[in-house]
Amino acid sequence: MTHRLPLVPLVLALALGVGCSTTTPADAGPQEVAAVQLTVEGEVTKIDTPSRLITVRGPEGNEVEVHADDTVRNFSQVRVGDRVTLDYLRSVTVDIQPAGSAEPGAYIKQKQDIAKTGERPRVGAAEIVTVLAPIRAIDLANNTVTVEGPRGNVVTLDVVKPEHRARLPQLKVGDMLRIAFTEAAAVRVTPKGG
């Protein structure tokens, strides 16, 4: 039976319910990347210091009230008229790792960047979830690859792109499909006129 799963649900299907390690395997080989990157800017129009609320007007005139929790250091430096920039990235990277190059499983890596005392307010965070699933079968006639997820769940994937189909004969049972899902966001405040 062949399951046709989009990439993000595939990551979830392979990793769901699995304890994740924080050690991520090293890169090796060509990768396929799909990414969406978005940047939105706005202007601070109102600050409620006791409640730590900032009102930001977006590029189309809409206003959003945002609560700056205690992780937002140097809140007192924010002024009406300052520019707030949000950068957001979501990507999926897929590649094949040679058999034995890493331990199959699910891995999670988190990074955080918070302004130090005295710096302009900023905060950034990234999370990378990586799943290494061993290849259990390769069907050249039907252009499919069957992988085993960390919980032992087996998923058969259709190989659709011609360039990927051309690489199927080079794969071996035991090689690993690696899927890395990255989500990152960063917010920074720039002084008015800066």
Rank of each mutant, 00 (worst) to 15 (best):
42 G>C: 12
187 V>F: 13
80 V>S: 09
174 G>K: 12
104 P>A: 05
17 G>L: 06
167 R>S: 15
17 G>A: 02
145 V>K: 05
163 E>W: 09
127 E>A: 12
73 R>W: 00
153 N>Y: 00
81 G>C: 03
116 K>P: 00
36 V>W: 14
54 I>M: 12
71 T>Q: 10
98 P>G: 08
152 G>T: 00
166 A>D: 13
81 G>L: 00
80 V>Y: 03
138 I>V: 15
23 T>A: 15
149 G>T: 05
173 V>Q: 11
1 M>C: 03
47 I>A: 09
146 T>N: 03
163 E>V: 11
82 D>F: 04
31 Q>K: 14
139 D>W: 02
108 I>F: 01
157 L>K: 10
92 V>R: 05
91 S>C: 03
31 Q>A: 14
175 D>S: 10
179 I>P: 08
112 Q>Y: 07
182 T>K: 02
74 N>K: 07
18 V>Q: 06
156 T>H: 00
83 R>I: 13
165 R>D: 00
52 R>N: 04
111 K>D: 13
149 G>Y: 04
43 E>K: 15
108 I>P: 07
122 R>C: 07
109 K>L: 09
145 V>F: 02
146 T>A: 05
13 A>H: 07
148 E>V: 00
32 E>A: 13
137 A>Q: 14
189 V>I: 15
103 E>L: 11
115 A>G: 01
90 R>C: 03
29 G>C: 12
74 N>V: 09
150 P>S: 04
70 D>A: 13
99 A>D: 12
188 R>G: 12
100 G>V: 06
75 F>T: 08
17 G>T: 02
160 V>C: 02
